[in-house]
């Protein structure tokens, strides 16, 4: 079991309130992703749950028990660090076995558990090596192996893939998703990466300046962001925000329209614009344009577009995909 509940969790470093007060419910078996800009407190929140930092105030309930004042080991959680944090002086076997040794398990139990973890993670051939003699992906697998043998109530990941190259990231992403499907253990995963967040999460928590901006399924956040911040943060390229007359026409302070929800035409449309830069990716084309009287906008068009600098185009937003925001940046719902 691994249901985690945060109640008014606060954290200050000196006079700096990094987490001013967070309430959050994580159900057993859920894959929860924390996203947010750099410095927003994702790692801090994760470390508070882990017990590596002491809360300034508030409760952390794991399966109903407040563990806010318990030592990390007592919470029954495992953590995978961005830097892997393997013990460099121990073999892979001993790295994975360390937690079990600390728990006083018998040699046979340890051996059986380490071997089975190694098998799941394809590490059987490397058990006698030191971490220094492994590739980045293998090190990451050892770190995961170390986490799973302890059979934790939940896994905590702090940007575990950010040190890997792009191809390996995709692989490890799939492996972690696979692991979650197999183990069905609660996972909390911190990342910068949109794609990781959207593809892996059952539930995304968007943080800004230590505050929870919105919690929801990936597609909920994409389709109905609660405010301008979430709207701008989820989705890539970023949503276009337009004010002025166009917004007034929709009875709001500002409208948001995603780059993929604009249709491009060379002869007619709602918004006249001039192409500044066209990025041709093959499957799609990103157009960075200057819209007349509205400023810079980004358009994401499928397929190849024979457009370049100075070309005049017209953009038409998909009407049911327009997001409306009030003066405070809160979403207003469809008009």
């Amino acid at each position: 079991m691994g249901a985690i509940r945060l109640e008014k969790v606060k954290k200050s470093f000196g006079t700096l309130d990094v987490i001013p007060g967070v309430d959050l419910d994580i159900n057993d078996g859920e894959f929860v992703v924390f996203v947010g800009p750099s410095g927003c407190g994702k790692s801090t929140l994760l470390r508070l749950i882990a017990g590596l930092e002491d809360v300034t105030d508030g409760k952390i309930l794991i399966d109903g028990t407040d563990v806010a004042n318990e030592a990390p080991a007592k919470r029954g959680l495992s953590m995978v660090f961005q830097s892997y944090a393997l013990y460099p002086h121990m073999t892979v076997y001993n790295n994975i076995a360390f937690g079990l040794k600390m728990a006083g398990e018998s040699k046979d139990v340890i051996d059986q558990k380490v071997q089975s973890a190694a098998k799941i993670l394809n590490l059987t051939d490397y058990l006698d090596r030191r971490p220094g003699a492994l590739s980045g992906g293998q090190r990451q697998r050892v770190a995961i192996g170390r986490a799973i043998v302890r059979n934790p109530a939940a896994f905590l990941f702090d940007e575990p893939l950010s040190n890997l190259d792009a191809a390996l990231r995709v692989n490890m992403r799939l492996e972690i998703t696979g692991l979650h499907q197999e183990l069905k253990t609660t996972m909390i995963y911190v990342t910068h990466d949109q794609v990781e967040a959207m593809t892996m999460a059952d539930k995304i928590v968007v943080l800004q300046a230590g505050r929870v901006e919105q919690v929801g399924k990936p597609m909920e956040l994409y389709n109905s962001p609660a405010n301008k911040f979430v709207a701008g943060f989820i989705g890539s390229p970023k949503m276009n925000f337009l004010g002025g007359e166009l917004a007034a026409k929709h009875n709001c302070h500002e409208i948001g329209i995603r780059p993929e929800h604009l249709t491009v035409s060379t002869d007619r449309g709602d918004i006249a614009a001039t192409v500044k830069i066209a990025e041709h990716l093959g499957a799609e084309t990103y157009l960075h344009v200057e819209a007349d009287g509205l400023g810079p906008m980004t358009v994401r068009a499928t397929g190849e577009m024979p457009l370049g600098e100075h070309d005049k185009i017209f953009l038409t937003p998909e009407q049911d995909r327009i997001h409306r925001f009030d003066a405070h940046g809160l979403a207003l719902g469809p008009s």
Partner: peptide
């Protein structure tokens, strides 16, 4: 790196260990 000591803490090592 402090991470490594924290990993040990997560693994249940007491301070002397």
């Amino acid at each position: 790196p402090t991470d490594i000591l924290e990993a040990a803490r997560m693994d249940g090592a007491t301070l002397p260990k």
